[in-house]
Design a binder for these strands. Sequence first.
DNA 1: CTGTTAGCGCGTTCAC
DNA 2: GTGAACGCGCTAACAG
Lengths: 335, 335
Amino acid sequence: MLNKQVTLKDLARKLRLSVSTVSRALRNVQDISPETKKQVLALAEELNYEPNFIAKSLVNKNTKVIGVVLPVIASRYFANALSGMMEVADSKGYHIMFCQSDESFEKEELCIKKLVSIRADGILISVSKDTTNAELFLKVQQKGIPIVFFDRALENVAATKVTVNQHHGAYLAVEHLIARGYKRIAHIAGPKHLSIAVERLNGYLDALSKFNLPINEDHILYCEDFENDAQEKIEQLFNMEDKPDAIFAVNDASAIICIRYLEKLGYKVPKDIAVVGYNNDPTSEVVSPALTTIQQPSYEVGKLATQLLIDEIEDELTPFVEKVLAGELIIRSSS
Amino acid sequence: MLNKQVTLKDLARKLRLSVSTVSRALRNVQDISPETKKQVLALAEELNYEPNFIAKSLVNKNTKVIGVVLPVIASRYFANALSGMMEVADSKGYHIMFCQSDESFEKEELCIKKLVSIRADGILISVSKDTTNAELFLKVQQKGIPIVFFDRALENVAATKVTVNQHHGAYLAVEHLIARGYKRIAHIAGPKHLSIAVERLNGYLDALSKFNLPINEDHILYCEDFENDAQEKIEQLFNMEDKPDAIFAVNDASAIICIRYLEKLGYKVPKDIAVVGYNNDPTSEVVSPALTTIQQPSYEVGKLATQLLIDEIEDELTPFVEKVLAGELIIRSSS
DNA sequence: CTGTTAGCGCGTTCAC
DNA sequence: GTGAACGCGCTAACAG
């Protein structure tokens, strides 16, 4: 049953032609008598011939495969980015082969080795949380395989990077709250070692400064594990004399938890207190009241990163660029 | 810059050995003097040698690539299935290459051609909504490439299939409502041409029969576009004399819409009326009251389908099987 | 233990 | 216009 696949040789034998003639006829190259060309095409169709990509790759020295390494596919953000990648790759005749690092550096290394082994023409990567070592990526580049970082990039690697401006998104969110008249805006911040969390925090701080609002350190809650200590933190926030009148949370999940506890404590959202999240998770639409949030441009990140990677694959002299995309404010009823 | 990749030949030349000796040393095969083996390994490490999978594939007649064709990746269900696939594939040394059909038969055909061209060792597919023609799949099978259908299978193709028992999930949901004492259970049904919708409907009907509850045709609303005509349909449902005391919806989105309108009409969920959905979407946890629903075994479907496919790849005599997995009832506060 | 030979399926000279 | 020969990087069979 194995190896039922038709090859050029099979076609050549049946047609009493040479392999190279058949090859040329199929690829529409050089001068071929229209007669034989027709015959070849007919037989190829009849026998359901499909060119062997593997063999072609070996000769051409390219595989038309783009490797994608990302932390986890079961996430709206990355799934959307991947869709964007597939769209561009498809239109340019590339295939996507992707691997999950599961946020582990060792797995990431395995993924990359695998992609190098397959001789992917280029690699798109969003690094895992505990990736700090640049050496691995430099080695890949030395092999002549271009790498483009998307979403999460590594500082100390010279490469094309497509990221999202978290600072700007946070700024938009807070600016919106200020425009609505809220003045005492608290922030549920993420872990201090997470760069996206820090950027959002800075966007929050800069928006306050810009509009000459005082910064109250007690209004910033750094949360490692908000799901579990939310109640405590929120109570603490509302036991101060300078109670906030709005909350900007580092992500939708935290924002939703806030809404829950606030209602438990008897506050009305958004009348007594407004809440804004970040990510535009599907859940943000459904929660009541529907959550104002920031939509990440994940699809666009995927498209752009892939476009830039293909540019580098097809012209090695393409210079590295760093693109930063912005998110978009989605206004709903929680603010 | 291109083709910086180290080959066996490079190693052999530097070591003044033959290519085959180097190959054998690297693969730990046959008897090799420990001396030369050490040398080879050392140099390979130093030069960062990675075997060329492409070349290996050409010789071995297998690529260790599993092709996956699915309607859309940006869906919790398929993303989870894909995660399951990757786990099994990884552990068996296979790579996943996937394509989206976007629910279009033409795109699906392109995906398959592509995978055949790449000489994938096997294909996992969840067919698009408008796929009815089996010919394409038969052709692939004739080429000796095994196909396993997951989630959505094609009736008239003999192949291994891993699907989900929608009937049973619906039965569980309705049984649960009955156990809670609800007796007049309505059903928001999906389009009649969608097999999963029909199966869920049948599960609903069978549960009612099983517990000797009367079937009221007016309690079944067939919805093509529930998002837009929900209000009308629900009002119609509650204007009858035989008002329902519970609703089983064909999916979570519909269930959530129901909850919204019911509350607008002044009904309390679940006191006045219970609601159960289907899918365990992330949204179902967040909506208030949290939705009782059915968890699809998507991850398990992915794992099992991949396992069975690999069995067929590695032993062509493996007989086709059809596996049907069951969902799980998740009880929350809406019932 | 190691080298030589052949060939996987295809593209690319270079002849005729 | 067409064919023969060679090579891509690697494995496998056969010698020595």
